[in-house]
């Protein structure tokens, strides 16, 4: 009863969001969600580029410390908290899409509700942790758990798509998506557990020197670059009619991703 009322209240409010409501009436909620998913995806690609660029300063720790101070400022702290919104929404919704498309879960209204509820919970949890700002965790243990769970998820998706007809690139996009499903939100949350965990070059370098974490980072890096790159190419495929222009753009995106891959790998290996 309460749940119903709450839902009605929320959907009523949502119906009044100016632009969205027009689309909800004319194309339905999933259309709006698909746009949100797309925008979050693009936003993350942009963030990731900046991210890897800043991380590249780690090769001169002093420079990194100097530069990164800047991001410690209040408005940036707020922004880095807000980053949780696109990350978690895209991740969970991506998970839902994988279930919908590959696992035949077609009546996924309740899934959608979970996506929204968990996203909100995650964002608040992260905010809370950011404020507590002092818990110490065993990095290794944390990653072990996250990586194990996530690899099994990815394995399920791999086994599901192995024999299916269809494009291998597309399947790999879903596989990398499922691999990032927990890794990225976990990474994000972890990076906000302690002061200095990401803002002191020494601490970061010490961490990356652990071979296990190094592999985790590299795995995440390549999964993300492939996934984001394919995503962008797929978007150009929707809009660009000229085959030549489209191939050109695809090559450009590929090269950009490869460059970031190179920067990221060099970083992880050199340290």
């Amino acid at each position: 009863m309460v749940k119903k009322r709450l839902e009605r209240f929320i959907s009523h409010r949502l119906d009044q969001v100016p632009i969205a409501s027009v689309y909800v009436k004319s194309r339905g909620w999933y259309f709006v969600i698909a746009w949100a998913h797309r925008l979050c995806g693009i936003l993350m690609v942009l963030f990731a580029s900046v991210h890897i660029y800043t991380l590249s300063f780690l090769s001169t720790p002093a420079l990194y410390d100097a530069k990164i101070k800047f991001f410690g400022l209040a408005p940036f702290a707020f922004l880095s908290w807000m980053l949780a919104i696109p990350v978690i929404f895209h991740a969970l919704n991506g998970g839902r899409l994988i279930l919908y498309e590959m696992f035949g879960s077609r009546n996924d209204n309740s899934m959608t509700r979970w996506v929204f509820s968990l996203s909100i919970a995650f964002v608040f949890l992260q905010g809370l942790l950011m404020m507590l700002w002092s818990r110490s965790v065993s990095m290794l243990f944390f990653w072990l758990v996250a990586a194990t769970i996530n690899s099994s998820l990815a394995c399920i998706v791999i086994s599901k798509s192995w024999k299916a007809t269809g494009s291998i690139f597309w399947k790999f996009h879903r596989i990398t998506g499922s691999f990032l499903l927990i890794m990225v939100p976990a990474h994000l949350m972890l990076m906000h557990l302690q002061p200095g965990i990401s803002q002191e070059a020494a601490m970061v370098i010490a961490r990356i020197q652990n071979p296990f974490i190094k592999w985790i980072d590299l795995g995440m890096l390549f999964a993300m670059l492939y996934h984001g790159g394919y995503g962008l190419i797929s978007i150009t495929g929707d809009y660009i009619e000229s085959k030549v222009l489209q191939n050109g753009l695809a090559a450009l995106i590929f090269l950009t991703m490869a460059a970031f891959g190179w920067i990221g790998t060099r970083l992880a290996i050199m340290i």
Partner: peptide
């Protein structure tokens, strides 16, 4: 999978379902 197709289809065909079948 924006499912606008299923939403607007006057014949109430779950079009998105079929497209997803192909993806699966």
């Amino acid at each position: 999978s924006s499912r606008a197709c299923s939403f607007v289809c006057p014949k109430e065909i779950d079009v998105a379902h079929f497209v997803a079948l192909a993806k699966a």
